[in-house]
Design a protein around this nucleic acid. Structure first.
Length: 424
RNA sequence: GGAGAGAUGGCAGAGUGGUCGAAUGCGGUGGUCUUGAAAACCAUUGUACAGCAAUGUACCGGGGGUUCGAAUCCCUCUCUCUCCGCCA
């Protein structure tokens, strides 16, 4: 959520920056400012009435103390009108405040000045590309067939138990998952991220804090009996640890990492996009989250991209880094880098990490602040990224590392898997 | 699931209708003393909105009500704890 005072003071600049998302919000902005004017006006009128009421109440208290009953009764009459006015103004104020919040939540974050303009994924900018795209042998298979051939993942069994998009990992497939999780967590913790095991279900306030609610309501699994949501990413519980928190300046940098399963309804997805491991309802992911001072946040974003880059290099996967265009960025982000690995049998790039700086957009919803040098409370910046999402890494590993006889495990993973090669 | 207790400032913990934004203790910050530190003593110490400011208003789990006046009384929701039951 943008801050109302920012919109008031930097209206033209905000409008300009939002153009990168291809949205015109002139009218919405005017509505917001009008609404805020009304809010302020109502508030100060109400304060005035309340102030008078408080004054009279004190006087009445004094009269009773002094036994001046008649004076007290006289004063009571004066409050009747004040009370009525206060009541109707309170109702108006609540209504106006709610409407203002509704309007504000409709505005996405302002894109950073370096964000390219554009409508879709085609307009994203490739920042860098690294690694060699492997030449596969003639009978190379896509990962879903490899998974079946070597009995690593059973999609049919998952279908039976839960439904499409809930694969069952078996034997070396399951071990590979566990190996990747441990490897990622070890990389992250040795880079200074503290490991967290958060809840996998969150309440409504948490969903609102990081921006999944109300914007992406339909994307989360909702446990209606208890009004809880299955997390779509560890970002939600981890970032919400800091809801309503005022951190100390010396607490920075705040760095966390967490492995969790992620649950996504993915309503409306179909076709080759969802084949095999490409898009699932439940998948494993190791996330990194940072909370920073505003002046540090873009340096931090670069560090996070560099950190994930290192991991991809160690995994010996060909990858590229994209800077997302305004039209492709998520609602809450100010700047996002996507990391994609090449999956050689499918001959396509797969997103395995999305690293974003949300600036103060989430922090404003979370009421996450820190005390600056002048002891003023200032909104923090929040950032997060995957390090990394498992299924597409697995897809790419299987496809790229296959030969006629089996699949080679990258060196860094061997201590974690206990095997170098999958051939049976 | 059954029975009971509770939710107050960073923490602990008073406060059962009036000057209570809230005692007291601990913690934090600043200072005095000291070669330095500790101790002791003094002062200070919540958040938000409006306002240049003085100041005003709101907030004692959330929402609603009674009253001139609510942390305090009533209704309701949520959460926490204890005991019993069940159980990884």
């Amino acid at each position: 959520m943008l801050q109302i005072n920012y919109i008031r003071e930097h209206k033209a600049e905000a409008l300009e920056r939002l153009k990168k998302r291809n949205i015109e919000v002139d009218k919405l902005f005017n509505k917001i400012i009008d609404k805020d004017d009304l809010r302020k006006d109502t508030q100060s009128k109400l304060d005035n009435f309340l102030s008078q009421s408080n004054q009279i109440a004190k006087e009445i208290g004094q009269y009773f103390k002094n036994g001046e009953k008649e004076k007290a009764e006289e004063a009571k009459i004066k409050t009747v009108e004040l009370k009525q006015n206060s009541k109707s103004l309170t109702e108006l104020l609540n209504k106006v405040s709610d409407e203002l919040t509704d309007l504000l939540t409709q505005i996405p974050n302002l894109p950073h000045e370096s964000v390219p303009s554009g409508n879709s994924a085609n307009d994203n900018k490739t920042v860098s590309e690294e690694g060699n795209i492997p030449k596969l042998h003639e009978n190379a298979l896509p990962h879903w067939e490899l998974a079946q051939k070597y009995d690593l993942i059973d999609f049919e069994l998952g279908n039976k138990i839960s439904g499409a998009g809930f694969p069952v990992y078996k034997g070396k497939g399951a071990k590979l998952q566990r190996a990747l999780i441990n490897y990622f967590l070890d990389k992250n913790t040795s880079a200074g991220y503290q490991e967290i095991q958060p809840p996998h279900l969150v309440n409504e306030a948490s969903g609102f804090g990081t921006g999944q609610l109300p914007d992406k309501e339909g994307q989360m699994y909702h446990v209606t009996a208890d009004n809880l949501y299955l997390i779509p990413t560890a970002e939600v519980p981890v970032t919400n640890m800091f809801r309503d928190v005022i951190v100390k300046s010396e607490d920075f940098p705040i760095k966390y990492t967490a492995y969790t399963p992620c649950f996504r309804r993915e309503a409306g997805s179909y076709g080759k996009d969802v084949r095999g491991l490409n898009r699932l309802h439940q998948f494993d992911k190791v996330e990194i989250v940072q909370i920073q001072k505003p002046e540090q946040s873009y340096q931090t974003l670069d560090n996070m991209v560099e950190h994930v880059t290192q991991i991809l290099r160690e995994l010996e996967l060909p990858f590229r880094i994209l800077k997302l265009c305004g039209g492709d960025m998520s609602f809450t982000s100010a700047l996002t880098y996507d990391m994609e690995v090449y999956s050689a049998a499918q001959e396509r790039w797969l997103e395995v990490s999305s690293i974003s700086n949300f600036e103060s957009y989430q922090a404003n919803r979370l009421k996450l602040r820190y005390k600056d040098e002048n002891k003023k409370n200032v909104l923090c910046h929040t950032l997060n990224g995957s390090a990394l999402a498992l299924p597409r890494i697995v897809a790419s590993l299987l496809e790229n590392n296959q030969d006629e006889k089996g699949i080679r495990i990258p060196k860094v993973l061997v201590p974690y898997t206990g095997f170098k090669y999958i051939n049976s």
